[in-house]
């Protein structure tokens, strides 16, 4: 019997950071289509989006056995491999997120030229949204494709990761907008972000319930994996992810009165924390619950 962690915590961190970028980009571009009213969301989403995914990609390459050979991902393609497809989604998304960020600086006259000609801005942003969704989802399909790991090989996982990606991305933008300038000037935008995030949290809770239920009523292997998760990572999963990362922010949003920058920032931080713990628990517990031989 052996419990082995082949993909270390760096991989979990990458899955998380890629999701935050995807969510922040989706929030920013969606806001840009809604006009001036949401200029701070557009702005801060554009500022945030490129960086987490770039850091995450660095971690990903760093974890390779042969980091200098990463370029082979683009020369040798395997259409059956989620990682092969993900490499293209990741680089296209990264390029669009950087272009979108640069264009934001250009519209604020902070840089003198733009990477996106005016005629293409809307189109590129529009194309970026499915890529942002793709970034959030493919990280789930990546784990899902491993038939050896029971906690990963579950069809609901990509949906959990998508909901978490969008939710954490929106939360990151919410924290930034809330703290960026005077409360009165941003409170309408923050309020709407919080509503969007609450909906996303609700969807994530639903997806998580479906995931846990499918394990609970599944075969002996699935039940054993769920038992392992509860026994060894229960505090982090039920305490960190479900309670602190999802239920508490939902409770604060729906059942407490009063709005302030501090409250919005706290809410967003809790969601960001929950998303991180979710990735770590799924990545590590999944492998630990699977004796390889």
């Amino acid at each position: 019997m052996s419990h082995t962690v082949t993909w270390p915590v760096w991989i979990a961190l990458y899955l998380y950071l890629a999701g935050v970028s995807g969510g922040a980009f989706a929030a920013s571009t969606a806001a840009s289509f809604l006009g001036e009213r949401y200029r701070n969301v557009t702005r801060w989403g554009a500022y945030i989006a490129p960086w987490p995914v770039l850091i995450g990609t660095g971690l990903l390459i760093f974890d390779l056995g042969s980091p200098m050979k990463f370029y082979l991902l683009f020369l040798k393609v395997n259409p059956r491999s989620v990682m092969s497809m993900g490499a293209f989604i990741l680089s296209l998304f990264g390029a669009i997120a950087v272009a979108h960020f640069w264009h934001q600086l250009y519209t604020e006259k902070k840089v003198k030229f733009t990477l996106l000609p005016d005629s293409l801005v809307k189109l590129i942003r529009f194309l970026g949204i499915p890529l942002a969704v793709g970034i959030g989802t493919y990280t789930g399909f990546l784990l899902n494709a491993s038939i050896a790991v029971t906690l990963w090989n579950n069809g609901v996982l990509p949906l959990i990761f998508l909901a978490s990606a969008l939710s954490t991305g929106v939360a990151a933008v919410m924290v930034a907008v809330a703290l960026s300038s005077k409360w009165n000037t941003v409170k309408d935008e923050v309020r709407n972000l919080a509503i969007v995030d609450a909906v996303l949290i609700g969807l994530e809770l639903f997806a998580l319930a479906a995931y846990l239920w499918s394990l609970h009523v599944g075969n002996l292997k699935q039940q054993a994996a769920l038992d392992y998760l509860n026994l060894h990572y229960g505090v982090w999963f039920w305490g960190g992810v479900i309670t602190v990362g999802l239920l508490l922010p939902l409770f604060l949003k729906v059942f407490t009165k009063g709005e302030s920058a501090a409250k919005a920032a706290l809410n967003g931080t809790l969601v960001l924390f929950g998303g991180l713990v979710l990735r770590i628990v799924i990545v590590i517990a999944g492998q630990m619950a699977t004796p390889l031989y």
């Binding site: 390779l64 042969s66 990463f70 991902l73 491999s81 990682m83 038939i147 050896a148 790991v149």
Partner: peptide, 11 residues
């Protein structure tokens, strides 16, 4: 062609 991503190892 192997880049050492270890995807095969976890699968």
């Amino acid at each position: 062609d192997c880049i050492g991503c270890k995807y095969c190892m976890v699968s």
